[in-house]
Each structure stands twice: as structure tokens, then as C-alpha cells.
């Protein structure tokens, strides 16, 4: 019985209540044959990292629209490191200004998908990275 599946945690850190985008991505990844763990709204960095560890995901996809990404994303990356789980690939999407992207990549976010991204690009990126 051999059946490797890519497991992805789709999480919404912070306080904004808009999960439309996260749900669209979650569905697209599911339809691409992945196992998507969806946790709902308003997750703290600690909740996200703890969930990623228990679920042993390959990828964390963060969706954020509140503008708190420069604060929340580095905290998530720090907690991953603290738990020796920095091998988990972290990607993000939502409303993230162009000028913030270099800083987020520096803390270890693998890729940032801004509004208008084709879900196929996200799928391809994940499949390319998880091998």
C-alpha cells in the first residue's frame, strides 16, 4: 500500500473574517489531489504551527487580508524553527503590498501569491517544491 499525498494546511492568521480566497485555494488544491486541512478563521501563529506539526503537512498556505502579515508571518516562521519544523514550506496569499514581499521572503516565506493569481500556479509551485 503506497500512496504518498501532499498535505497542505490552509490557515487564516489574524483577525480578518474573509475566507473566500482561502476556501477557493483549499478547493483547488483538493481538486489537484492534495489533502487539505482547513482550520477556519482567526488562527494564532501558535495554533497554526501546532496544527502543522500534528497534521505533518508538507506545506502551510497562509491567507491574510488584514495587513498584519509583517507581524504574524515572522512569528509563524520563528515558531516553526523553535519546533524544528522549518522543513515545512510556507506560502502566502491575500492582500500583501509589493514592497513587503522581500522582507517576508527573507524570513523564509517561500512564495507570495497576490490577488489575481491563477490557482494552477499555486498548484504547480507546490508540486514542484514537494518532492
Amino acid at each position: 500500500m503506497k500512496a504518498k499525498k501532499i498535505r497542505v494546511l490552509v490557515a487564516k492568521p489574524g483577525l480578518d473574517g474573509h475566507d473566500r480566497g482561502a476556501k477557493v485555494v483549499a478547493r483547488a488544491l483538493r481538486d489537484a489531489g492534495m489533502e487539505v486541512i482547513y482550520t477556519g478563521l482567526r488562527q494564532t501563529p501558535r495554533q497554526i504551527v501546532e496544527t502543522a506539526i500534528q497534521e505533518d503537512v508538507n506545506v502551510i498556505g497562509l491567507s491574510i487580508l488584514s495587513g498584519a502579515h509583517t507581524h504574524l508571518f515572522p512569528e509563524i516562521m520563528r515558531l516553526l524553527k523553535e519546533n524544528k519544523a522549518e522543513d515545512i514550506i510556507v506560502i502566502a496569499g491575500g492582500v500583501i503590498p509589493e514592497e513587503d514581499i522581500p522582507e517576508l521572503k527573507k524570513v523564509g516565506i517561500a512564495e507570495i501569491f497576490t490577488p489575481g493569481t491563477d490557482t494552477r500556479d499555486i498548484i504547480n509551485f507546490i508540486k514542484e517544491k514537494v518532492k
Partner: peptide, 15 residues
Amino acid sequence: GALLGDRIRMQDLST
């Protein structure tokens, strides 16, 4: 693929 959403109802337990 699968969408696994049971954790939505168990958010407080994750930490």
C-alpha cells in the same frame, strides 16, 4: 484529494 475540515470545530484544542 480531500478537504479535511474537522478542526474548524476544535480550534481551541490545537494549542
